[in-house]
Amino acid sequence: MKRSNTFLLTMLGFGFAFFYVPILSMIVYSFNASRLATVWGGFSTKWYGTLLSNAQVGKALTLSLEIAVISSTTATILGTMAGIALARFTTFRGRTLFSGLVTAPLIMPEVITGISSLIFFILLGQYLGWPAARGFTTVTLAHITFSMVFVTTIVQSRMLSADRAIEEAAMDLGAKPWQVLRDVTLPVISPAILSGWLLAFTISMDDVVITNFTTGPGTTTLPILIWSKVKLGVTPDINALATLIVLTVGLCVLAAGVGMNRAERRAERDRRLAYRANQ
């Protein structure tokens, strides 16, 4: 018993080390005074200063955020509609094809999606004259295409687990189909829609491959910027940028954890209320 405990703890230690030592070393080296990424030259915060005064990074971050907000919002609208259709309309012509087409990007290698998007945009440009050049529009369109499927999947599974009778009850009480959608269906699946949006946003924010294929000159998102900078060698300001990203993500996770904890306590209180109401 004691021995297996030690063994488990050791393995756990290794596991955590495997995950976090690289990140920790990156954070430590972002405070490196030396210009060389692998040589410690004393403590300094100057790379953060360099980073903040770097207009290129600020521009790339803004661009990434813009693309992420627009693409995830559009993908959420389209994906929600597709998810509802797939869950509710079990028999329509071409349903299997539609369902396949919607979920195919989920398993398609990103390189393939990237290349095909590129070719498609070039052909469109040749024959229709739009989009004239690759850039903001094409990247956003490509992001919508591949992040929509995640929203669809989440919304569809939520719809399938929801009680169909709730919608029927609303209809029975005098609500027309669009009122049922507004008053009942959308509020009930809203958590799924929100998590779909968050997922689409995250995917768009950190995508390199597909963006690389569909972007043009002057449209550099944050991941692309990091990627191209690293190609020239890891500099401490990249370490500083990565540290800031880790910090942001960490704060988000912490906030989500606190929120979940609170929701759990509220659910516990509701259970007690329901139990007492029974007495």
């Binding site: 009778a165 709730i166 609500a175």
Partner: peptide, 27 residues
């Protein structure tokens, strides 16, 4: 269904989970 003078009480009750008791009854 929405124009019939008929209302149904569902086996699962099908209450709207995001509405209060009051709002459910008034829907």
């Amino acid at each position: 269904p929405w124009e019939r003078p008929v209302h149904m009480m569902f086996q699962s009750y099908a209450l709207f989970p995001h509405m209060t008791v009051e709002k459910n009854i008034g829907y």
